[in-house]
Every structure is written in C-alpha cells, then in structure tokens.
Design a protein around this nucleic acid. Structure first.
Lengths: 362, 362
DNA sequence: CTTGTGAATTAAAACGCTTTAACCATATGC
DNA sequence: GCATATGGTTAAAGCGTTTTAATTCACAAG
C-alpha cells in the first residue's frame, strides 16, 4: 500500500504541492474555496502527513517531550497529566519517555527527544544526589520537582511550605504532642519535616517526635505505627499524627481506629501532598494541595516562554528561572474540619481538588 | 549555536559523509580503525543525529508507540512498564501518548504516531462500547487489554479466569456465603463476576450475593460495605468477600476489622488483578497476578512479530492474532495462606510478584 | 605485467515536506 | 489607461539523513 504523499493530494485537488502545504500550515494564506477542495482531497485519499518530513523541513515539530524517572513515582502521574493538559491547551503534542529509574536512560531519552526535533523538553530527574554534567542542549529544557541546585530552570514544589502549613493547622487545633511519620531519608520528606520543625520552634511547649517509617512508605507501615502509637500509655500518646506522605497518614488512621481511638476526637491526623490514592480513608484526610499537577502545568508554561524567547535571542543569554508551586491546605474530617452535609464523601472530596479526576481509580 | 551535522563529523574525521552514516548504522561495513576515528570526531563535536532525517531517509525509526487511555486507569501503568521493558530489551525506543479518556484524542494520537514513522503501535483503547471505524493503518497495530471484538490483533487479560481462580480458591476453603463487591457496570468486572458465577454454579449450596460498589471503586466504598456486611445478623453474614478490584477488597478488610471481625478467621477476603497499590493492607491480601505488566510485554512481542512479518508479506494478508494472559493465584494471609516467617510483610509480598518494583510508592 | 576480486570508501540520488521568492491575475489609485 | 498593490498560487531550493551504485585501492592469481 503505497503511502499517500502531499503531491498526490495536490494532483487530486488540482493545485500545486505548495498550496496544499500552505493549506495545512498557513490556512489564512489560501482562499477558503481552495481550502475546501484540498480538504476534500485529503479526506478522499486519507492523507496522513509525514511528521518526520515536516520536522526536517520545518525545523520544528510542535511537539514537547516529557522525561519521567518512573511512572509510579509520587508525583509523576500528576505531573504528566498537568503537562499534557497544558500542552494541548497551547496546541502542542506531548510525548513521554520513562527512564525506569535509570539515570543513563533518562539522559539518553532526553538526547533522543532532542534528536527527534522536539521543540522543548521537560525533565523530572531520576532522584539522585549529583546532577549529571550539564549536557549541551539543542532545545530549551526545564526541570521539574527538583530540590534547588539544578543546572537550569526548574519548577518545584514548596515542600517546606507544605510542612509548615500542616503544622500551623494543627497548632491552631490545640495539639500538644505531634508524631511525624515518614521516610526521612528522602529529600522531599526532609524538607517537609523541616517546615514542621520550623513552625514548632515557635511553640516549645508542643512535643514533637519523628518516627522513621521504613523504606517503602506503604500504608501498612502507617498502620503499624498508628497502632503502636495509640497503644502507648495515655501520657505518652500523641494527640496528632502527621504523615509525611498521604499514604502513610491513611494507614495511620486505619491503625488508630483499629485500637478504638476516634479520629479526630482523640487524634488528629494529617498528610502531605494530597495524593488522590489516599482519598479513600475511613475518615477523610486533611492534607495539602497536591503539587504534581500544578508542577506539570507550570513546567509547560515556563518551557513555552523559553521557546518563544529562544526565537528572539540565543538561549545561552537567558536567565535561569525558578518557579515554586505554592501549597494550600485541604482541611477535612481527620482534623475536625466540618464535612459538607448532603454530599457523599467522594463528592465532598471532589470539591476540594480541581483535578479531581486524577483520582478515579479502576 | 549551529547544530552539528553528519557532514561536520565527516570533515572532522577526514572521511566522507557516507562513511560516517555507515559507521552509525552498519558498523560491520567500516574498518575498525576508521570507526575509531569517527567515534572520536563524534565525541569531540558532540554530534546528535537528527532522528527526523533518519526516519525520513531510512523509512523506519526503531521507535514503537504506545497510546494509553489515561495514565491512572487500572492497568495502564503496569502496561506501560511492561511494554517499556520489553521494547528496550529488543533495542526499540518507546514513546507514549496519553489520550486523557478522549476517544478522538486517542485516534489522533495514534495517527500522529504513524505520521511520525514509528514502526508499530500499541493501543489500549479508551473504554467505550463501540470500536471506532477501523482506520487504515500504515503500520502494524496491536490492541491491549480489550474485551474481544477488537478489529485487529490484541492482547487481553483473562478476566473470567481471574474470577474463577479466586472462586475456586475460596471454595476449597469451605466458604458457605460469598459477597462480591464491585462496580459491575464495567466490562472487566462483569467478566470477573461471570467467572465467579461459573464456578459457583457447580456449588448450589454456596450462597452468592453481589453488591454494587458505586462508581468510583475507591477503598472507602469497600470499607463501608465491609462494615455493613459484618454488622448483619450472624446468619445473614457472609464468610467471604471478593473485591472485584483489589482496592475495594483492601477497603473491605479495613471495614471488617473495624467491627471487630477477624480476617481470615471470621472472614476470608480476596481481590482481583493484584494491584500493587493494595499491598499495604493490614492483612496481606490474596489476589490474582496483575495482568498489566504481562499484557504490555506480550503486546510488544506480538507487535514485533507483526513488524517482522510485514517486511515479508503485506500486512493485509496477515491473520488476526489474539493473545490471552493467563492469571495465577497469589494466596496470602487474608484467606489464611501461611505467611512466610522471618520476612517482613513487604519482603513477603515482594516475593510473590516478579515486577514488585511496580509497587514502590513515594 | 595485466586482470580479477573483494573490501572500503565515496558521490549522488532519494525521502516528503516547508518555505522563499518569483509569478500572475485581478483590483485599486491617480 | 498605466503604474501599483494585493491575494493566491507555483516552482524550486533546501532540511539531514540513508542507501544505491560507482569508484578506488590493495593484493592475489594467471
């Protein structure tokens, strides 16, 4: 089946090849009448433009690349969704590459995308301590969800801010003893904890203890910790638990409930970074706005700005930009926020988060 | 910054352009000595091949496309990982497009990828009743995770088999009253249920009831159902719950425990399609092997076969192939399977599922 | 000293499109 | 009416590769 080329369309429509190309790329340059004839010819022949040829000839692709470290890393999913939505809004296609937690593969993917003539690249780096030597980029690159120190422009969540937000929220609820649970070896978590500590340093009367939750951050660990914390002697028992991760917090709620403790009456529980996976807790979980979606959105915006700017001036002279996504609190039942009556819990939760659809799980 | 072209490399290495191309694509055709010189020149100049030009000239790309309906649809994540891994194993790159549950976008993405000269496409269709009119494909296409009736070759899970497997497992444990919970409006779920009913039709003495879990399949719904089922009068109470989804089953465990029921002593609980997200239940959940990863793997294999075959004979004459991924049981504590002693629960679970790493959640 | 052979290299022809500049009507201004 | 715009259209020149056919070269055989 010989593939239909632009020349075939031109012949079918009785115009020249260039006119067809114009109809496709600069519709305003061709008379509506002619355009109609061409459209019909395209339809009749089932013409499919060869993107490779377009990119080669045009020097640009209208495609943006997104390199993720792994599909199931915390925010990657939400980043992907935010980026996709925003890219489409601007008429760009988005193609994704998954580095499978392999640093070399991540770099190779980015290089490959550049070779593919994408107009710009978003990279969520593989978690690691050192940055790879800043490769020479032939297209604008923006890094996502990184701690500061990236070699280029980046968009990042305000992890410290998240911690502080939650801590302040609990403080206003009169807590006297907070237990923080989470894998504190991770950078993100360290920052969240720092935010908490920062706020509590102004409240020396409030007791703060930190429990490491093991390597996996699965809710089973949260569950165990919830149980053991609630089984302590009354005086030793915390009256609030912060999960550095929503999944841990969700587990902790389950664990606490199983000991007969009541949430939020006996125990306040809050999470971080509003993971839609954790919505389905017995008691709706107070948390912070999930940053992923917004990081993806802002990443695309920043990238597009840089692409536009590159056309004007050489990329080298552009300043490095840093964007931080500000968190906001999502107070829910687990810290005694008043549930909206007349709504199911799911509906209730849905109202709190714009990108609710992120959470529907099969 | 003018981009380095293959001609620049040739000049730097003191050979002709064609030789550089050969060194890149048919290394065996160029003397090792020359190859070394060329490699050095490439290194020195930081040459990055223009993939668009390669695809255009070569007519193929060494890239496979994957179109997903949505990143967070049940098995999509695992499909993506399975496909990626298998594609890399065969030296292919994989680029993904996300259709965001939009049928038109899904079709457009597939067309776009074809225009991009990918060598083949894997499509997990947007859930919907009718198939889009079979578009003319310029490259081999394989559909994934579909109910039968697809217009082309496909790889699918054996949802009925999963249901049957779980049902048989419970039957051998002497259950007398099974409650099935899940959103039975979904095709996948219908099939799983059918498998269960099929097995139980041979056991008229076992009571079977089906409870619809609402639209969202979140574990909160499982929790509520778990509570209400266990709060029934002793005679009315089921002694086993099957969640058509692992997440529901996980919720049900929590709900049941909260009423004081013991799992698995008073109640057996099992899920379906081993969702790693549900690993973190208080009691390890019995379930079936997750099909997603395997579907992705087999999909790539089938696709590669078809690509190889297309080179030999025209695609039209090829037969339509159907592959089904067979499920196997993952018996764990929630149905009284003996836990492996000396291992943490996480380790224990890890051993049961090859693609364990799928489940590590930040 | 031819001639033949095979390996290594090169020159040149696609690949399918975008874009530039030239072209041609037809409408506009004086 | 003649020059001047103006909107549409076209011919032709790339874009950076791969690939095919031609060329060169070294060496062995006759």
């Amino acid at each position: 089946m010989a593939r239909v080329r632009i020349g075939d369309v031109a012949r079918e429509a009785g115009v020249s090849l260039g006119t067809v190309s114009n109809a496709l790329n600069h519709p305003e340059k061709v008379r509506p009448e002619t355009r109609r004839i061409i459209d019909e010819a395209i339809e009749r022949l089932g013409y499919l433009p060869n993107q490779s040829a377009r990119m080669l000839a045009g020097g640009h692709s209208n495609v943006l690349g997104l390199v993720l470290p792994r599909l199931n890393h915390g925010s990657s999913l939400q980043i992907a969704n935010g980026a996709l939505t925003e890219a489409r809004r601007h008429g760009y296609n988005l193609i994704m590459a998954n580095a499978n937690d392999d640093k070399a593969l991540s770099a190779r993917s980015a290089r490959y995308l550049m070779g593919m003539q994408v107009d710009g690249i978003l990279v969520q780096p593989v978690p690691s301590l050192e940055w790879e030597p800043a490769a020479t980029h032939t297209v604008p690159v923006v890094y996502l969800d990184v701690r500061s120190g990236s070699p280029g422009s980046y968009v990042s969540a305000d992890n410290m801010g998240q911690g502080a937000l939650i801590a302040r929220h609990l403080v206003t609820h009169g807590t006297e003893h907070i237990a923080v649970i989470g894998r504190t070896s991770s950078q993100h978590m360290k920052l969240r904890l720092a935010g908490i500590q920062d706020v509590l340093s102004a409240h020396p009367d409030i007791e703060l203890e930190v429990l490491d939750a093991g390597e996996w951050n699965v809710s089973g660990d949260g569950y165990s910790l919830g149980v053991s914390l609630m089984q302590r002697a009354p005086g030793e028992r915390p009256d609030a638990i912060i999960g550095l991760t929503d999944v841990l917090a969700a587990g902790a709620i389950g664990g606490a409930l199983s000991t007969g403790a009541r949430v939020p009456d006996d125990l306040l529980v809050a999470g971080c970074d509003g993971n839609p996976l954790a919505w389905s807790t017995p008691v709706a979980l107070t948390t912070c706005s999930p940053a992923g979606y917004e990081i993806g959105r802002k990443g695309i915006q920043l990238l597009l700005e840089r692409i536009a700017a590159s056309d004007a001036q050489p990329r080298e002279t552009q300043e490095r930009r840093e964007e931080v996504v500000r968190p906001f609190l999502l107070p829910r039942a687990s810290t005694g926020a008043v549930p909206t009556e007349g709504l199911t819990t799911v509906e209730n939760r849905a109202r709190s988060i714009p990108e609710f659809n992120m959470g529907a799980y099969l």
